[in-house]
Design a protein around this nucleic acid. Structure first.
Lengths: 234, 234
DNA sequence: CAGTGGTCTAGACCACAGG
DNA sequence: CTGTGGTCTAGACCACTGG
């Protein structure tokens, strides 16, 4: 009866969503297999497959060979947080971007958090760059960065005075994978000073480490100005 | 020459990654079109398409009809944060889960943040539930939840004494979409008390609103115990 | 063992947007 | 207008895993 009504994988996805939401297919229940759905919808199995794979990726369906496809009992919402270059993050909000390098040390002993994140011994000498990114002149985020020049020799030639390490590394040191950590920390020391935050004020902090295979490229702690939040949809 | 070497879309994805990483295809550069790559790799175009679409979704490639596929100049790292049911979040860490309902009010005026998130007037009467989730007996996260019983009538019958609103709603009030916000806030009032956090301590906070179409289901503020962080990979 | 999803193929048509 | 990606199809084989 539905034959011909659902032609694109998106429309099939919509219909599946409708059935889940209308409780025609209940949480935990096995839904018909791909071949049956394809027949019902009057389309090829590959089209159904595309729709169901997308829903499985979003966590709403769970699929296993032979066991079939079931509606997830506890749909894990997967929030995708975009972490762009800071300059673009600011410009996309229609604010004017500013950058100021604070310090650059050719070789400084890595602090515990950076060393641990990069899998190095604490105190390993690394290239260190501290900088402040501003939006409409106001402090936006403080960048505390540690770079492994063994992995990225080119970084030693950069002074990061005009182009931030954030931006330079992203286009010049492609990474294979990375770790990222979101946390809340009390404002303290130089970041607090630069961000005009009173000592102990809660700051939103992102720590990120990127790798080229098994070799760490860089570790960075981004301390955002008070009140900053990250929004997305699920 | 490569014909026959790359047969699965994953292996093609790997090869494309290798070329990007090895700078054979530089940032901003247009790469060969799908038909050419399919010929080079000795596979069907659909297989190449699958590999390139996956890479585009991850932000490493940018694709436009007619314009072709290019290596992203500023690869936006997309971190996917899984937000599971709190009970599972704790149990997956191998810790024992505990739950305690603190208060339940049939009808309380919505605070500003909740009302704004749900698109209602401040002070709109809503069902309010406050609860504490514990891990190995220690406070883990404080749940401050506001439920729109117009949208979810069934919630009015629940006392949320044994099953948390978090869990009950996820399986009983499927949502079409939601907003989520990560922030850092100073510990204050009841959450601070329940979490054994000193006043003003930085807390990691997640605010989430879920919708059934245009109707708000619930808004929740999750205040995590001091030191909590969210980790993922990119 | 057999049913289910995962994937590949060869070919086709279409939608979009660059030139 | 034309090249490029986006998608659909019908059929096939395979990989995994539940029973």
């Amino acid at each position: 009866m539905n034959a011909g009504t659902f032609r694109s994988w998106q429309s099939i996805q919509q219909e599946v969503l409708r059935r889940i939401h209308a409780r025609e297919w209940e949480p935990g229940e096995v839904i018909p297999n791909e071949a049956d759905l394809a027949r019902e919808f009057g389309c090829a199995r590959a089209t159904v497959n595309r729709a169901l794979q997308a829903l499985a990726e979003s966590g709403l369906l769970e699929r296993r060979r032979k066991a079939g496809t079931r509606v997830a009992l506890h749909p894990v919402s997967k929030a995708t947080v975009n972490v762009p270059v800071i300059r673009l993050e600011i410009e996309e909000r229609g604010r004017s971007y500013g950058y100021e390098r604070i310090t650059r040390l050719e070789s400084a002993p890595a602090p515990l958090w950076a060393a641990a994140a990069m899998g190095l011994a604490a105190g390993t000498p690394l290239l260190h760059v501290a900088a402040l990114h501003t939006a409409d002149g106001a402090p936006f985020v403080h960048e505390d960065r540690w770079i492994n020049t063994d992995t990225v020799p080119g970084a030693a030639q950069q002074d990061f005075r005009d182009v931030s390490a954030n931006e330079w590394l992203l286009t010049n040191a492609p990474y294979t994978h990375g770790d990222i950590c979101f946390a809340a920390m009390a404002a303290d020391g130089e970041p607090a000073l630069r961000l005009d935050a009173s000592d102990g004020a809660p700051l939103f902090v992102i720590e990120r480490t990127t790798w080229d295979g098994a070799r760490a490229i860089t570790a960075v702690r981004l301390s955002y100005a008070p009140g900053h939040s990250i929004r997305t949809t699920i």
